[in-house]
């Protein structure tokens, strides 16, 4: 880790500009800004994902986590951040804990429910419970369903057993190729139409030929 961090911390400071840089403070980072907000409201839901996070998500998550009876700090952020430059769902919890300096249950996730949970100053198996919830739910269940399953796992009579006997996710509905179904129906209609048209034309042709032959015979 130090091997990686060493050059990075040394490289970006140009020798001439160090005095100017020291004068102006760096802008606050993501963890700083999030920690400030969490201090005001421990449930922080991003407004970048209104299509997948329902408007009442904050209220529902707050109500769900209240059943655990521990202080909870939740960050639901936008998905797909480049994790190597910006602390994201998997690296953010220690940074937030450092800045908030408060023990409790930390959940950092995105609108899909990925990410992780960790508890400081307690013995809840939060990490394993969150992982279990993710494995039990389909990928499009949404973050509220994940919190719901997470709380359900942690409030089970025997939490360790509940985690151990992980429920399998609901089976995906069998794949239905609507395009192929549509094609088959349309081909059937066209085939039927062709057969009917061919028979009708053949009948008309036969009638014409018979009439002509009769006329020729007379």
């Amino acid at each position: 880790m130090s091997l990686l961090l060493g050059p990075v911390s040394l490289a970006p400071v140009p020798p001439g500009a160090s005095a100017a840089h020291a004068a102006a403070p760096e802008p606050p980072g993501r963890a700083d800004l999030l920690a400030r907000r969490l201090a005001r409201d421990p449930i922080q839901i991003t407004d970048h994902a209104p299509r997948t996070v329902p408007p009442d998500a904050a209220a529902r998550i707050r109500a769900l986590l209240a059943r655990l009876d521990v202080p909870a700090y939740v960050v639901v952020g936008p998905g797909l951040l480049p994790i190597s430059t910006i602390p994201d769902r998997d690296t953010l919890i220690p940074l937030l804990h450092d800045r908030l300096r408060k023990d409790g249950l930390y959940i950092v996730t995105d609108h899909r429910g990925s990410g992780e949970a960790r508890q400081y100053g307690g013995s809840l198996p939060a990490e394993r419970a969150w992982l279990t919830a993710r494995l039990e739910l389909p990928s499009d269940a949404g973050v509220v369903a994940h919190v719901e399953r997470f709380v359900e796992i942690l409030t089970a009579p025997d939490v360790a057993k509940r985690i151990e006997e992980r429920r399998s996710p609901p089976p995906a509905p069998p794949y239905r190729d609507r395009s192929a179904e549509r094609d088959r129906k349309e081909m059937l209609a066209m085939g039927g139409g062709t057969a009917a048209g061919a028979l009708l034309t053949a009948a008309a042709l036969a009638a014409v030929l018979v009439a002509r032959r009769r006329k020729a015979r007379r």
Binding site: A189, M190, G191, G192, G193, T194, G197, L200
Partner: peptide, 13 residues
């Protein structure tokens, strides 16, 4: 498709 078959493809066939 039905009319295509009935009016075009069937007679053509």
């Amino acid at each position: 498709p039905l009319l295509t078959g009935l009016l075009v493809l069937g007679p053509l066939l």
